[in-house]
């Protein structure tokens, strides 16, 4: 079994590495296809200045040579200089924004997992009661509604109509709404996932045995049932991180949080191409790693899963 697991991990790892390589390649060549280059703006500099700038950033070389250089730089963690923020490295800007986004994202992810598990377990335990029905209606709604719509509606309700929270993500208390709007959809998904796997588990023989032996109800639910019901949730952690990261792109715009999404947004409108490339590659790599980890964890935690 162990050699099978190792083989699976190696296979997934190779696929992940290839995916990251593919993402870098696609990003690079697709961005190179944009006509005009990054120095084209309203007040175009003279041809000499453009040529000098291109020589400085290595843009005068053949595209393939630029690609090899870019790959080599990436291996050293160098995403090149930002074009609109003169004198700043892309990687520094990304790290600066990511520090903010990662904190929010982590809180949102933890919130989603904890509340999602509790609500899902509740819905399963009180199956077919009004608690179950309310939870299911709400979670169905929140799974479907995109995070930026949730964010705008929350902004309208809690900042404009009833000014409880500040609309600006910079001040204290301003991060409450962005975190809630990021976590609502994954939370609802986890709730549904936990509910269905919990219902499945609660019908199994060993739960009846535990009950027959006189184990208290809370202990049966939390120790015997929930432990086995959480495994499907593990597979969702990877996609959830991806969802939260892309969701943060727009949620940060809505609440003016100075995170990575905000940088990404302004770099798209500013045509800061190295920044767009760097952020895309950075986020995509992160997502691939997260999906890989959650898939491998799932196989390790649940020995029943078929590895073939």
């Amino acid at each position: 079994m162990d050699s099978k697991l190792a083989l699976y991990i190696v296979k997934r790892l190779l696929l992940a590495i290839f995916t990251v390589f593919l993402i870098i390649t696609i990003t690079f060549f697709v961005m190179k296809a944009i006509p005009g280059g990054p120095f084209l703006s309203e007040k175009s500099p003279s041809p000499e200045v453009t040529a000098a700038l291109e020589a400085k950033y290595g843009l005068d070389k053949p595209v393939f040579e630029q690609y090899i250089t870019y790959l080599k730089d990436l291996l050293r963690g160098d995403f090149g200089p930002s074009i609109k923020n003169r004198g700043r490295q892309v990687i520094d800007l990304i790290m600066e924004g990511f520090a903010v986004s990662a904190k929010n994202g982590l809180i949102a992810a933890c919130l989603a997992i904890v509340i999602g598990l509790v609500l899902g377990a509740l819905a399963a335990v009180f199956h077919d009661s009004w608690i179950d029905k309310t939870i299911m209606v709400l979670s169905t709604a929140f799974v479907a509604i995109p995070s930026f719509v949730v964010a705008t509606l929350l902004l309208l309700i809690f900042c404009i109509t009833f000014p409880i929270f500040p609309a600006n993500g910079n001040v204290s208390g301003g991060l409450v709404l962005p975190i809630i709007s990021l976590s609502l959809s994954p939370m609802s998904y986890i709730t549904r996932l936990t509910r269905s796997s919990m219902l499945d588990v609660l019908g199994q023989d060993y739960i009846r045995t535990a009950r027959a032996k006189g184990v208290s109800n809370t202990k049966v639910i939390f120790k015997h049932a929930l432990k086995n019901a959480v495994t499907p949730v593990i597979t969702y952690v990877g996609p959830m991180i991806a969802y939260i990261l892309t969701g943060s792109l727009v949620v940060e715009k809505v609440f003016a949080v100075p995170g990575l999404g905000d940088f990404f947004f302004s770099s798209i409108t500013n045509r800061d191409y190295p920044m767009v490339m760097g952020t895309t590659i950075f986020l995509a790599t992160l997502m691939v790693i997260m999906t890989l980890l959650s898939d491998i964890c799932y196989k390790i935690f649940d020995p029943r899963v078929d590895l073939s």
Binding site: F18, T27, V288
Partner: peptide, 20 residues
């Protein structure tokens, strides 16, 4: 391989480029 690409990010990237 296509499945493992982060779809929204790739969409944003392609839209940026195709728009131009």
């Amino acid at each position: 391989i296509i499945y493992s690409l982060p779809d929204l990010l790739m969409i944003i990237l392609l839209s940026v480029v195709l728009n131009k």
